[in-house]
Design a binder for these strands. Structure first.
Lengths: 234, 234
DNA sequence: CGGAATGTTTGATCTGAATCAACTTTCGTC
DNA sequence: GACGAAAGTTGATTCAGATCAAACATTCCG
């Protein structure tokens, strides 16, 4: 593993307060791998064998039942994912696939649990990580239940604009097909929701979004930290 | 606080592995209170001041936005709730109200966080608690996105029947109005979903549910541990 | 560069669930 | 036990979003 990546991991909130020996032990057991795009990393139902740490690229977490599929989240570096399944030593509830060529560190779940039983700082950090993950999921569920399709899209765009530093123009971070699934609608509905938002201060051109009337958009979506998730909290 | 209740709390997974001094300190700081039905315990947006431990009764966790409301969960004894907000020292994302007269222990969040920084066993237990909560929320979100109204109700009934020990008859644990909101539909739609399930082996009479054809119901809902939540895991 | 594959938009239509309204049942309280 | 309020059901209607189908656009790759 490159020194630089090791430092990136070390600086993650989850690993920042570990003792050095414990961290070294974890890294020693870890695999650093590069995966091509569109590779299935995890299949829901499998028992969690590895904690995944994204260094580069993007990973989609999705779920399926019968013939239906839905995107649950898109993970961006540098973040860990599926910590909960590792901790519970339980089956993954979601599948994961790379969206782009991605560099990912795999840490055996056994070692994570061991580190975790030994190292208090790590346990505390895990609690913070899980708590934040929990809260983001509450927000996602509230969004699905309280807002309609157009409002969900509007709120998403509002938040992305904030994340980018309050700019009025930005590029969608992933394909619309995926965004639609994440927001709980079909691609066709997403397309129509974009159209409907033209009357509420949003202009779209391909992947490029411009917020032409922030006040109008804000009035529609009523952004709210109790519903809207900021990306890349770490 | 009654000795018996103290023991109930002590036996919760969250507190089971604490050292006795740490547990005693926590309990010392705690308030044991009885609340009447329909009392608002927590308002979303407030900063988390207390970890709540349900001893008796039932509490609804719900959320609202604009004029819309939705039930996120119904908490039954003996369980803790809103641990994540306490840990993050952040605003509650959900409101809480008692459904019945309820006995609840309130532990100041500061003390929880302190206990937690000191007591390793407690930190480990918190991770397990949060992980399980996280996973249940993933299931809830998957349910909302992957199943339609009738399937959600069918799956819910299937799971309640399993929880009751695989019996074919049981009584709904809460009013239908609330169940409808939890399952993400209107009371009218719930009523029609019950009707529709008559063709899939479910008979309903008031609050009393009878599964008349388990095979038929199972075929419809395709129950699945990756989607369906067992109540009262502790 | 060209053409196949995949993603996106648009239009027409359908449908599951929401809404609105009226009625019945159940529950809590005096 | 009666009465008022709230919960639940049923029917009629509407509507948001899904589905189906076809045209476009973009990306990928030989």
């Amino acid at each position: 593993m490159r020194e630089e990546d090791r430092n990136d991991i070390r600086n993650l909130p989850l690993f920042r307060n570990m003792t050095s020996p414990a961290f070294d032990a974890l890294m020693h057991a870890a695999y650093d791998q590069v995966f091509p795009a569109q590779l299935e990393l995890i299949q829901q139902g499998e028992v969690a064998n590895f904690l995944h740490v994204m260094l580069e690229g993007a990973v989609e977490l999705y779920a399926n039942w019968q013939e239906r599929d839905t995107t649950m989240a898109v993970v961006q570096p540098v973040t860990t994912f599926i910590l909960a399944a590792c901790m519970r030593d339980a089956p993954y509830l979601m599948s994961a696939r790379t969206l782009q060529r991605s560099r990912i560190v795999l840490i055996p779940a056994v070692d994570v649990r061991a580190a975790f039983a030994r190292d208090h700082g790590f346990a505390l950090a895990a609690v913070q990580d899980l708590s934040e993950g929990y809260r983001n999921l509450v927000r996602h569920a509230k969004n699905l239940k309280l807002r309609n399709a157009r409002e969900r899209l509007g709120a998403y765009l509002w938040q992305r604009s904030l994340d980018a530093g309050g700019v009025q123009g930005f590029v969608l971070p992933q394909e619309k097909r995926l965004l639609a699934s994440y927001l709980g609608m079909t691609p066709e509905s997403l397309s129509r929701a974009f159209k409907a938002l033209r009357d509420h201060g949003v202009h779209i051109d391909g992947m490029r979004v411009t917020i032409t009337d922030a006040a109008a958009l804000k009035a529609l979506v009523q952004p709210n930290t109790l519903l809207d998730t900021t990306l890349n909290i770490p």
